[in-house]
């Protein structure tokens, strides 16, 4: 009996420790492979340089950092009216109703659609629309990628913020109603302010997702190594440059891609950390 207990405790502890080893291995792997590029270009020169020249083996990450931030920020902006509506619909107006169950399951299913299918949809359905509207000649680019990204992150932003909105205590709202406030005023003055930091945190989490999204963006952003000058311009994100060039890369270029991977890892990790930290504060 006691032997079994020891064995089980040993297994559980080993499993937990393995997670630590795994994470350490991930960081160590990325850092060690990045070393060549760091040594050749220096960290700050690398992230500040706009050059990506395979022939002369000179690499810089600024265009991809810019592309990543641009697409992710735009995606958040585009998704707000939709995701906020969905979270109010599910967390406020139709809380615990059958209708909200339906809406939230449909929106959640959206999160299940594979990234590559979103990419196809963006390429074959949305791109021609953008061209027809005259927003862009080819259709490819930051705008197209951001729109599809926005659709992809709606479920992440909306389901979490709906939970925070639903958690707003009823007596607070009833207090406002009893003073003659309308639905909208209760939302503006009570629900949104009270759930505010939680909602904010959910959007940061969604932002983190948008930063790392790979396949759909790779298919839609146009794959050029420049800083996008406007919304219709093409570019590359950190994730898409890795996906596009990893297969043919070796030597210094591979190392440069590793640096981009490492950067992306740290950026998404910090963004997620901030979101989790805010949520911890909210729950207290």
């Amino acid at each position: 009996m006691a032997k079994m207990d020891k064995l089980l405790r040993g297994i559980l502890l080993t499993a937990a420790c393995f997670i630590i080893v795994l994470t350490a291995g991930i960081v160590y792997g990325l850092v060690s492979q990045s070393w060549d590029a760091f040594a050749s270009f220096g960290f700050f020169r690398f992230i500040a340089s706009t050059e990506w020249d395979s022939r002369n083996d000179i690499y810089g990450a600024l265009p991809f950092i810019a592309g990543t931030v641009m697409t992710a920020v735009l995606a958040i902006l585009f998704c707000i009216p939709f995701s906020l509506s969905v979270s109010l619909f599910n967390g406020e107006y139709f809380r615990n109703k059958k209708l909200s169950l339906f809406v939230s399951s449909v929106v959640d299913l959206l999160a299940g659609v594979p990234s590559i299918v979103f990419g196809l949809w963006g390429f074959y359905t949305l791109r021609p629309v953008l061209v027809d509207l005259g927003l862009s000649q080819q259709g490819f680019g930051v705008l197209l990628a951001s729109i599809v990204l926005a659709v992809m992150i709606i479920p992440y932003a909306s389901s979490l913020s709906a939970e925070f909105i639903a958690m707003v205590p009823n007596d607070l709202k009833e207090g406002a109603y009893s003073l003659g406030a309308t639905n909208l005023e209760v939302i503006q003055r009570v629900s949104l302010p009270v759930a505010g930091s939680g909602i904010f945190a959910s959007y940061i989490l969604a932002f983190g997702r948008a930063l790392g999204e790979t396949m759909a963006v790779t298919m839609l952003i146009g794959n050029t190594n420049n800083i996008p000058r406007n919304l219709a311009d093409t570019g590359n994100t950190m994730a898409s440059i890795i996906a596009n060039q990893f297969g043919e890369a070796g030597g210094l270029k591979l190392s440069a891609l590793m640096v981009i991977g490492l950067l992306l890892f740290f950026i998404t990790a910090s963004v997620n950390f901030i979101a989790k930290y805010i949520m911890k504060l909210v729950n207290r």
């Binding site: 997670i19 630590i20 991930i26 792997g29 999204e213 890795i242 590793m258 991977g261 992306l264 989790k276």
Partner: peptide, 28 residues
């Protein structure tokens, strides 16, 4: 403490973009 560390690391793993995981596995 160990459990909290592991929990945080697990959250960290969850946030890693899939392409970065691919790259890591390429290395290892």
């Amino acid at each position: 403490p160990l459990a909290r560390l592991v929990r945080n690391l697990s959250d960290l793993l969850q946030g890693i973009p899939s392409i970065v995981i691919g790259v890591i596995v390429y290395i290892w």
